[in-house]
Design a protein around this nucleic acid. Structure first.
Lengths: 185, 185, 185, 185
DNA sequence: ACTAGCGGGACCTCCCGTTCAT
DNA sequence: ATGAACGGGAGGTCCCGCTAGT
């Protein structure tokens, strides 16, 4: 078992170059506005090579080799922490020393979130009132985003099982799970 | 106050037909697999008419006239409820008597959530262990979805303001907001 | 024979409104970038009404009621003038008191000329050298534009008659005609 | 200096085939009446390949590799010739042995000139009278085309500089430039 | 009658899979 | 085996003719 050969190193470099340029372009121009051809040109490879390294354009954003780190951090968080605290611990730990490239990745991912932004207003507007805050307060967005994030997989799971149980049951369970995870059961 | 005239009624009928068939097809074949031409054919209109009513294919899913109802329900929820409980109250109320069309809309929206599913595993896997549940337990997904939902707007807002404050601060605040909203401050 | 009825006046006003807004939009955004729908919206009519007044989008630019004036001016120019001088006389006379609307029309027409600009370089570059001027000197462009303008109908006429005579003959005649008209024979 | 390789040769052949068939179809059916799909079918390629080689449909007509020849011919024309004579010399030289393909290109380009034909009548009608010729005499068209060709860039340049000087000044200069170039100053 | 709306079709861009030359 | 070129097909925009409501 020798040190990774020249081929492997070159492959890694190519992969890194693609991601690097793709994320930069996404940040500069937006995800939809950036074409695979542009990325390929920037990384000085052919478009087909792009697809050799990443199955789809989306994969550039979501292929992340740092994910295992988060997994490890959550797993190894102190046992007394609630799930929410464990995640906070892990995320904040990892993001403490975020490099420039990581920033680009994060930004690119976040940009893709724009697509989903539209429907949050349904919740943010009335909730802002209830919380006594402005409708564009980050805390309102965070909370409403969290609720929606909890609802979506519930609805999706319900839809997949085609109504075996009532939707309201699934939703109630999801929001309970959110509360439980936050509180620490 | 006259009757809305044939023109308006026809327009409304067309719009409804497009949405109806689009959502049905999305449910049957998936969103990506359904083409605008298919929708147009099913609704018995021309593809260009489709784009007259909805600027993009996505818009069919996210144009929802029932949203105001949710807003009203949250606003009018009993004052003592925490934000989370208020939302639960509103959502469950509205979904109590969900019609078939609503179901289709809900399902279609949820299907689009698939795109975002990829990254939840980062959290679900280790959290499932901490919660003593299976990795595909709906409650694990609900909680992790909620956390991600809270994180995304925080990250996005941070990216937009280009690092005025540390990312870890923004994230901490977001998770606190989630906790506060859940608990009821 | 009464004064033009209300209907006629309204029609004239509509026509004027269309042209007015169209030319304004062309000037602001460019011809290609302006859609008929935008023009219709600006003039507060429906797109189909637009086509009732102007057969095509192009026609807005080229429908010009002041053309007869130029014809009259050229015809009535002093007899001793060469053709070129007669045209100069007519054009300069009319353009002496150019209104704002006329300016818009002129500008719009000229913008459409952009499409033809590409091929002038073939002549301007070497001719600039021969004339001892810069390649973007207005006089170089004027002369080369003139030559091309004289060549095109010659070529086109030749193509239409499908080579009854040699192309070089047609071209020679065209350039001679240009010289003759300029000099005044 | 190696042979260009199969790849390059094939590429050149494809490009040539597209242009060949496109120009033929333009000549047969007119430019507007010919669709890109038809051209692609005739050249036995896919429509998307068409757009790989030419950014727009128009580009097929205006992409011309023979232009450098004209430049060279004008540049190397005898020093004593007036600009007009130099151009005549160059054009007639090149068109002396015009191949069939060249003919097609020329014809196609000239056909596109049709779009601009409309406004020449303003000049041709009265000028024909002054020149003592028929209104459709080729020489009348050549001369008037030349004048318009000279006027257009002047107007366009004037519009671009937004009226720094009077339009009549720009026009006078343009017509002077035409005269000067024709006469040989 | 006048005009709003729809149909049809062209243009052009993009993504991604596949084929074929090197 | 690597990668350049191509194919196929969808999305989205625009123009303009035609149908049919007011």
């Amino acid at each position: 078992m020798t040190t990774p050969g020249l081929r492997e190193r070159k492959k890694a470099r190519t992969r890194w170059a693609i991601q690097e340029h793709a994320l930069r372009l996404f940040a500069e121009q937006g995800y939809e506005q950036t074409t695979v051809d542009q990325i390929a040109a920037a990384a000085d490879i052919s478009p087909s090579t792009f697809f050799r390294y990443f199955k789809t354009k989306e994969d550039v954003v979501f292929a992340d080799e740092y994910d295992p780190l988060i997994v490890a951090l959550i797993t190894s968080a102190p046992a007394g922490l609630s799930p929410l605290e464990a995640i906070r611990h892990a995320v904040v730990s990892q993001l403490g020393d975020v490099t420039d490239e990581d920033q680009a990745t994060i930004l690119a991912r976040a940009r893709m979130y724009e697509n989903f932004n539209g429907q949050t207003e349904v919740f943010t507007a009335p909730i802002a009132i209830r919380m006594g805050r402005e409708p564009d307060d980050p805390m309102v967005h965070a909370f409403c985003g969290g609720v929606i994030g909890a609802l979506l997989p519930a609805i999706y799971g319900w839809a997949e099982h085609d109504g075996e149980e009532k939707l309201s049951v699934a939703i109630t369970r999801a929001l309970d799970a959110l509360a439980e995870g936050v509180r620490g059961a």
